[in-house]
Amino acid sequence: MDSALTFPTALRELLRTHQTFLSYAASHVHTLDLTLPQFDIIITLGNTAGINFKILGEKTLITKGTLTGVISRLEDKGLVQRVASETDGRSQIVQLTEAGKDLYQRTFPEHLAFIYRIFNDYSPEDIATLEATLLRLRKAVIAARSNESEQLVEETDQ
Score class of each variant (00 low, 15 high):
N47H: 10
N120T: 09
E110D: 08
D76S: 11
N47F: 11
D40T: 15
Y122A: 09
R106W: 04
S72A: 09
Q105H: 12
L14N: 06
G50L: 07
Y24F: 11
Y104A: 01
L103D: 01
S85I: 12
T107C: 04
H18F: 11
T107D: 06
Q81W: 06
T107S: 06
A25F: 10
I71D: 02
L96C: 00
A10S: 10
F21M: 05
L15V: 11
L56Y: 02
Y104G: 03
T48F: 01
V80T: 12
H111P: 02
R117V: 10
A113N: 06
T31H: 04
T17E: 06
L56G: 01
S91C: 09
E58G: 06
I55L: 07
T68Y: 10
E110Y: 05
P109Q: 04
I62M: 02
D76F: 11
V29D: 01
D126Q: 08
L96H: 01
T97Q: 00
I51L: 07
V80I: 10
D102A: 14
Q105C: 03
N120K: 11
F53S: 10
L34R: 03
I55D: 14
R106Q: 12
L14I: 05
K54A: 04
S123W: 08
G65L: 11
L34I: 06
G100V: 01
K59I: 09
T97S: 01
V70T: 15
Q38V: 04
H18I: 11
L112S: 05
G69H: 07
V83H: 07
R16M: 07
K59R: 12
P109R: 03
Q81G: 03
R106F: 14
T31F: 08
F119N: 13
